[in-house]
């Protein structure tokens, strides 16, 4: 029986004042910056006018280089702990986020997006260049491109567009 009996608690916006509470030292550093095999994952978050969001927050969840999604604690105090496969990054004044992580042996990195002005969490996926799966196959070419990170030097770049023609593909897991 998977029938649900309790109604969900509704979400609410993260608001403008999360910066002293949710970010913490090392939050976006899933592996140390510049360590062997590390990857910079970065991008910008834009509103419907193309203006960057300086008050958004992204969280990522991913497998490691072995394809395993870690289930180990330590994300809040990373020093000396193994890769946890989870990180958090608030956008800066230019709307930019950046993570130091590894390229997973998986097709995508899962993403949760929060922002002032956004009344509930939104989910998306950052597909690795060249990745494919049945969900990606179900999209049209433009959507597929918007869900796939591009490689720039040693970094993967993935922008989030909250609305409009180029809107990021957001997911409904209902």
């Amino acid at each position: 029986m998977t029938e649900r009996t309790l109604p969900a608690t509704p979400g609410q916006t993260v608001g403008p004042f999360f910066h002293y509470a949710l970010p913490y030292p090392g939050d976006n550093e899933l592996v140390p910056w510049g360590s062997p095999g590390s990857l910079t994952l970065r991008g910008r978050v834009y509103d419907g006018d193309g203006a960057p969001l300086p008050d958004a927050l992204l969280e990522i969840r991913q497998a490691g280089i072995d394809g395993v999604v870690p289930q180990v604690p330590g994300s809040l105090r990373r020093y000396g702990v193994p890769f946890t496969g989870w990180g958090r990054c608030a956008t800066d004044n230019a709307g930019e986020y950046r993570f130091s992580t590894v390229e997973p042996d998986a097709s995508f990195i899962a993403v949760a997006v929060f922002a002032r002005g956004l009344l509930d969490v939104l989910f998306t996926r950052i597909y690795l260049p060249g990745a494919t799966d049945s969900f990606l196959d179900s999209l049209d070419t433009a959507e597929r491109d918007r869900m796939t990170a591009r490689r720039e030097g040693d970094a993967l770049v993935f922008d989030v567009r909250m609305q409009g023609e180029e809107q990021t593909v957001f997911l409904d897991f209902t």
Partner: peptide, 23 residues
């Protein structure tokens, strides 16, 4: 200017989406 104007896409949770981080 910050809400999606296109419908969300139905998806089944897969891979990393199936496991919350552990603390």
């Amino acid at each position: 200017l910050r809400h999606p104007t296109k419908a969300l896409k139905q998806a089944d949770p897969e891979g990393a989406e199936l496991l919350a981080p552990v603390f």
